[in-house]
């Protein structure tokens, strides 16, 4: 049963790489956006808020297709990035990471936003009377106090990214070794005769990864909360 084939290993490692990169790249954007939504009122805020949540409610295949139109080789952004920066998303693992990042973004942003909203702003005032410039207030008070939410958001985003299927396969297809993640490998395997055992192994592995992520998130959140409350 646990005789994992090289193709399966490739898919597992690729999934991990895609999800880790997607989470790490998305996190700074997620923090910035969460802070903007938590702390500022501006024209178009509700539109921006809706836009962030869109991947959660759109059919993944629609998100994937929109990514293809935008970031594909002939897409507006995709062509520019390829010509000017040499960054190609279409049919590459980087495209899978982009699709996963976009799909998991709402799950990443939400806990961060909630934790920023929960911060006692009077602590930030205290910080400024002690000489902290606004960016220092953010770095030394806001960010550390939001840490439990940031970690929870990252783990949730990671779990979503590693299981993403619809947008990824639509945008970058299902190329073994390049864009074939655990999900798309399972999809291929259950379409082939005698693929059941291999599919079963990958299903088990994805359950283990997801459980591990959830347990890790609980643990991080507990540690961070304890740190904040001085135990």
């Amino acid at each position: 049963m646990f005789d994992i084939s090289p193709t399966e290993w490739t898919a597992i490692l690729l999934s991990l790489r895609v999800a880790v990169i997607a989470t790490l790249v998305a996190t700074p954007f997620g923090i910035a956006l969460a802070w903007l939504l938590a702390r500022h009122n501006f024209w178009g805020k509700s539109i921006l808020d809706a836009l962030v949540h869109l991947p959660l409610v759109l059919p993944p295949v629609v998100t994937g297709y929109l990514l293809l139109l935008t970031f594909g080789r002939r897409g507006m952004v995709g062509a520019w990035l390829a010509d000017n920066l040499g960054i190609v998303f279409a049919f590459r693992w980087t495209g899978a990471a982009l699709a996963c990042g976009v799909m998991s973004f709402p799950l990443l942003v939400r806990p961060i936003r909630l934790s920023i909203e929960a911060i006692d702003r009077r602590l930030e005032q205290a910080s400024s009377t002690l000489g902290a410039a606004p960016w220092q207030v953010f770095a030394t008070v806001t960010l550390p106090l939001a840490l439990p939410g940031i970690l929870a958001g990252m783990v949730l985003g990671f779990a979503k990214a590693i299981g993403e299927f619809g947008a990824t396969i639509t945008f970058v297809s299902n190329i073994p070794g390049e864009t074939q993640t655990i999900s798309s490998a399972i999809y291929s395997l259950i379409q082939t005769p005698d693929g059941d055992r291999a599919a079963g192994r990958l299903v088990l592995i994805s359950i283990v990864i997801a459980m591990g992520a959830l347990i890790a998130s609980e643990w991080f959140a507990r540690r961070a909360t304890q740190r904040l409350h001085g135990n």
């Binding site: 009077r122 205290a126 009377t129 000489g131 904040l228």
Partner: peptide, 20 residues
């Protein structure tokens, strides 16, 4: 002049120590 450039210390009724 913003608060952080005033060099005015402030002791609040509720202390407001940084919990972290």
């Amino acid at each position: 002049v913003p608060p952080h450039r005033r060099r005015i210390g402030y002791v609040f009724q509720d202390a407001r120590l940084f919990p972290h």
